[in-house]
Design a protein around this nucleic acid. Structure first.
Lengths: 269, 269
DNA sequence: CCTCAGAGGAGAACACTGTTCTCCGAACGC
DNA sequence: GCGTTCGGAGAACAGTGTTCTCCTCTGAGG
């Protein structure tokens, strides 16, 4: 990644006058296509085209290379997707469990987990399909379970809480991004009558209108909650979900009977 | 589905002696390919081949029909997948909210939701990709939110709890089935050395061996919990996850301060 | 300076996929 | 009886992941 060679953006066009040059210059210009570079190019394509537009041919084109060249560094597309996913954990620090601060640590874990999935387009979809622990990620799973166990949770609870929290993070981001993409699609076709409201909030307003149009007698609860679902920021909603889980976990602590240990977040009571 | 015509299984073979018959007989023999029949055939193919083996051509073959005929009744493959998903809700009863029994009702909701996803192969994957409420499912979403709101939960909590529980159900079943499929794959290639342990538990034993092989000093928590994750039945683990969420929700009830309302399930304390 | 082995990318090919186009043939109303 | 309409047939298009063979270009040895 931090090679001395300057980053050659997407394979220099053959530049006819360069054809006669000594071959040596050309080789040093096209850094020799390591596995890292393939993964990086794939992430670039992913961010630009989305998961549905991510094909091996697109990745090859991004590198100015033919498809077959990719298969020398990557076993299959599934393999590539797995590499892309594990790459997100590269610089991640492993939290050292502190029984006194387990709730803050869990909140941090959830927050950084969500940010990781948001760092590249459609990453939540990839995560859902290839999540179950690959060997490289075992240290992260270990550290996470360590947080739960040293907090004093019973083993069975800790084991299932791991699944629960990971699942919630993935699912939340998946819904969050799918909503955004759907909004982008809708904004694309409604280009004409979306003249007065900006692109992003256009969908929100449209959703609110839709819920408002439902017969209130048949859908009183949807009617009451739709405003919240549309209005509240995703960060806020995510925080609430995490808090529900944390409170549930806290109720399993040995001293839970002696009074709630949960230092209730301001504003959600 | 319950047409008077006997269910013709996968398009009767052309039966040479029937070819000479008046065309009228042939038409009544091949029930005219309604949208229902396409969905049903798709579910058959899904159960047999899995989601990756579900192609429009396979569905057409299942019906003894060409691909283009399908597109007269279904807009696209995505449309078909959505129809397959909403079909699972066909006979589902809408629970009437009972504030006294909200916890049992939520448990029931989770249980039937999981069973629904387990009723057809790879349904959890389809659910994750096309879940956000289609119009036909709004009554179910409404009833679900009704359970939470009439229980006395604050609106913001109820709104996010809906997402949380749905996400957990989908994610749990997804992991559950992916594990099973991975075990089936592994059993396929390990056909030789899997001579003494039966197919299904083969993977479990293998996983346990794998976790046992990890350096215990580096992965103490995984070491301690792996047994539970492998040993415990999926039903048990699912129940625990639901219980964690329920306890978290209960802590938001107005009378939660006066003592825990959670009638603790026997065995998980 | 020349030759020779070897690695790595090029290009074509295969078996698929979802979707759409045109066309035919059979059933119905008049 | 004729004409119209509609649903299915079949071929086609553009794209996919993957693999095969071939060729070129590089670096080492003489």
């Amino acid at each position: 990644m931090n090679d001395a060679a300057a980053h050659t953006p997407a394979s220099p066009p053959p530049t006819p006058w360069e054809r006669g040059r000594p071959a040596r210059a050309r080789v040093s210009a096209r850094t020799p296509l390591s596995r890292e570079r393939v993964v990086e190019a794939a992430l670039t394509v992913l961010d630009r085209q989305g998961l549905d537009g991510l094909s091996m041919r697109q990745v090859a084109a991004e590198l100015g290379v033919t498809v077959s060249a990719l298969y020398a560094h990557v076993r299959s597309k599934d393999d590539l997707l797995e590499l892309m996913y594990t790459r997100l954990f590269d610089g991640a620090a492993l939290p050292e469990p502190d029984p006194e601060r387990w709730q803050e640590q869990l909140r941090d874990y959830a927050r950084t987990g969500r940010e990781r999935l948001l760092s590249h387009r459609d990453m939540a979809r990839i995560s859902m399909a290839y999540a179950p622990f690959t060997a490289e990620l075992l240290p992260h799973v270990e550290a996470f379970l360590g947080l739960l166990r040293t907090a004093g949770l019973p083993d069975r609870i800790a084991a299932e809480a791991g699944d629960l929290i990971s699942t919630y993070i993935d699912g939340f981001v998946l819904g969050e991004t799918m909503w955004r993409e759907r909004a982008a699609e809708a904004a694309g076709e409604d280009a004409e009558d979306a003249s007065d409201h900006p692109d992003v909030n256009g969908m929100a307003a449209e959703m609110q209108d839709y819920f408002a149009s439902l017969p209130e007698s048949d859908f009183p609860h949807l009617h009451a909650l739709a405003g919240l679902m549309v209005t509240d920021s995703a960060d806020e909603r995510f925080g609430i979900g995490v808090e529900i889980i944390l409170r549930g976990l806290a109720s399993y602590l040995p001293d839970a009977a002696a009074g709630r240990t949960v230092p209730s977040e301001p504003g959600h009571d």
